[in-house]
Computed example of a mutant assay.
Amino acid sequence: MKQTIRKLLNELDALLVAHFYQRDEIVEIADLSGDSLELARKASQSEKSKIIFCGVGFMGQSVKILAPQKRVFMPKIACCSMARMIDGSYFDKSITLLKSYGIAEIFPVTYINSNAEVKAKVAELGGVVCTSSNAAKILDFALKQNKKIFFLPDRCLGQNLAIQNGLKSAVLGVDSMEKIKEAEIICYDGFCSVHQLFTPQDIEFFREKFPNILIVVHPECQPEVVKMADFVGSTSQIIKFVQSLEESQKVAVGTEFNLVHRLRKPKKGQEQNTFVLSSTKPECPTMNETTLKDVLQCLEAIKQGESYNEILLELEIANRAKKALDKMLQLS
């Protein structure tokens, strides 16, 4: 099957792209693997005319926004649960609520885990997109706008940025109007279902079992987890950090299972030194939907001239969303 896939990719002038959280079988055959920012940038700059994107829907949209001349297909248009927590109407209602509190000057920052419509609405208000790897740089820019920062949709990333910078934060729809008005970063009440699985108790368990272990987590984790960690970083930053460690150094990692499983597989005769920071398997169900069979079916359909799960966007929405993405790339 893998040989057939490679043959079809060459025939169709297509690039196979996979997010780090995809199954091993997908990452192993991909031309390019990476996190959200890396994939959006490199896939859009590829000379290939077609992009076969293995990930979740907003990622395929990001490539199409940045490179509208390319045809972008997804073997599975899987949905990120966090991205589904906000759409255009929820964004509008949030802005209306903030204004009803007397907050007129708003600078929105949307995590890349959001759909094209939300990115377009953020751009309308002069805002910008961020990823977990460049969020600190984007926040520095946002603070210079001298407006209330509305961070969406991931409340945890927003709260962790606030703590990191000694700023006050509040969650819209959860905290009181008084606390919202006092906050410098107002967070939308969204979250990643996978990164919510990691708890302080998990960290305490591993530190009791292995006194010298290092705890590494993603900034989508809850603030109390991030506070206890030895290292906090994006997917790419976690990979770089863990792979820089001595093989004998034990580490527990709080992010998606597939990535952790691939980080430092023990060689024959070696003990396990890389652990998943959870008592349950933190596997993203939608990231794990795509299989080799799906990729093959997608390519065969394209060869027959079918528009198989092709990412198509309204021109006006795509153009507005591109402004927010371009600003992110410029700043990062």
Rank of each mutant, 00 (worst) to 15 (best):
T4E: 15
R6G: 01
E11H: 14
E11I: 13
D13L: 04
D24R: 13
E25T: 10
G34P: 04
L37I: 00
L39P: 04
A40G: 11
K42D: 10
E47G: 15
I51K: 00
C54L: 02
V56I: 12
V63D: 04
K64P: 12
Q69G: 14
K70T: 03
R71A: 12
R71T: 08
M74R: 01
M74Y: 05
C80S: 00
M82I: 07
M85R: 08
G88A: 06
D92I: 15
I95P: 13
T96C: 13
L97V: 08
G102N: 04
G102S: 00
V109N: 03
Y111T: 04
E117K: 12
V122Y: 09
E124W: 04
E124V: 06
T131P: 05
A135R: 11
A136I: 15
D140A: 13
Q145R: 14
N146H: 14
F150Q: 05
L157V: 12
G158K: 08
I163V: 14
G166R: 09
V171I: 15
D175G: 12
M177N: 15
C192T: 01
C192K: 05
P200Y: 10
I203A: 14
E204H: 07
R207M: 01
F210H: 10
F210A: 05
P211L: 08
N212P: 04
N212F: 10
V217G: 05
P219A: 03
D230S: 01
V232W: 11
I238G: 02
I238D: 02
I238H: 06
I238E: 01
E247N: 15
S248H: 14
K250W: 03
A252V: 08
A252W: 09
E256L: 05
L263F: 02
K268V: 15
V276L: 09
T280W: 11
K281L: 14
P282M: 01
P285V: 06
T286L: 11
M287K: 02
N288E: 07
N288G: 03
L292G: 03
N309C: 07
L312Y: 12
L313H: 11
L313E: 12
E316H: 11
I317E: 00
M328P: 05
M328G: 04
L329G: 03
L331A: 12
